[in-house]
Design a protein around this nucleic acid. Structure first.
Lengths: 207, 207
DNA sequence: ACATCATTTGACCGAATGGTACAAACGGAA
DNA sequence: TTCCGTTTGTACCATTCGGTCAAATGATGT
């Protein structure tokens, strides 16, 4: 068979790149840092990512995006039980961001000019997250307008919790804030007209 | 008279430095950028800030801190009417951050390793903001624990709104989220055991 | 007018940047 | 073994980095 190992090796470097970008930001992550983080020489990095740092970051963003789609967005969109999906989302997100010790690369990129090259990806990431969460809330019987507002508030709130927890160096802040966000969503679900969330009827159709 | 204009000129450069750091981040704001932003040669910058970029950023942070103390924290702590103080805070913050188009330097610095040198300032900024807001809510009759949680949620929420609005490039998101945060605080105030909205000095009423 | 002196400047420095070139090293296929 | 394409390390490039400095500038006091 043809050697397709090119892509797999490239993919295997992405997590290390992500961690380096997370820690130092796009501008702060020099090629020396990236080389050390991945254990690859500059030549290898440019072999895998001919586009340089931009292509590396693009690969990292794609990797993050597929992770979120699989772990967060799809369960929100397709999960049979809205309440369980939301609880799982907060648990996964808390673990992913290590209670705010770990930074959200997507959010960070949007904050300075370095990330302008990726603006459409950033917007897509957040738009899909909000949309998936809102859709999940709607499935739980919450009217569309409120569902969208709650989803926006929750996603934004998670980002804020990361910023605050990092600045205060207090993971407890993150956990408190996220717990409040989760409680708000679950309360809204419980207060919705069709709070029953019968799994049988929901799986059938949820227009 | 002796020309002690040194300090005043130094101060006059700070806003331009702040804008440059805001736009490019700490690592991304090269001396060339800072020189162009301030209209000062590199030599002049090093005359005012012998410590280099770090001292420039420290001056910017101090400048921001005093602005927030005067415009936000003090009114929250000392204002006679909690409700009015909170409304004023959200109005001032929305104007300051230009509905999320403008980034919070303090929050940004905490997100990558470049800001570790300023960690105590960052923590102090957020701690005081939360404390001032919580104190204001307590004055409005909200019990301490809830007041602290609400304050933490609001400050964190503002940061999240900035991140989201920047990534989506939608100032409307910022305004919606901040409006919800304000409504939450005001509702909590209204629902508090009021006792006249303030036991002692309630003579003034808000317009 | 002159002398004094703080302030400003842009050329300059060594180090580090992102990126390129390329020869050696590697690893399957024959 | 030989072969040939892929990976890899490293030397190198032009540029830019943060930072320094002697010289130019301009205001001040007499």
């Amino acid at each position: 068979m043809k050697t397709r190992r090119v892509l797999t090796d490239r993919q295997s470097a992405v997590p290390a790149l992500a961690e380096a970008f997370r820690e130092h930001g796009f501008e702060g992550a020099s090629l020396a840092v990236l080389s050390k983080a991945t254990g690859l020489g500059k030549g290898s990095l440019y072999n895998f990512f001919p586009g340089g740092k931009e292509e590396m970051m693009a690969a990292v963003l794609d990797n993050i995006d597929t992770w979120f789609v699989d772990a967060i967005f799809q369960p929100l969109e397709d999960g049979p039980d809205p309440q369980a999906a939301i609880i799982a989302m907060f648990a996964d997100v808390t673990a992913y961001f290590r209670s705010g010790r770990r930074v959200c690369i997507v959010g960070c990129l949007g904050l300075n000019t370095a990330g302008q090259a990726f603006s459409s990806k950033l917007a897509g990431y957040f738009a899909r997250w909000i949309s998936a969460l809102a859709h999940c809330l709607e499935k739980g019987g919450i009217p569309q307008g409120l569902a969208l507002a709650l989803a926006e508030e929750a996603v934004s709130g998670i980002q804020g919790a990361i910023v605050l927890a990092r600045a205060l160096d207090e993971a407890a802040s993150f956990q408190r804030i996220v717990a409040r966000l989760q409680a708000t969503l679950l309360a809204a679900l419980a207060a919705s007209p069709e709070a029953g969330t019968a799994p049988d009827t929901v799986t059938k159709d949820a227009t």
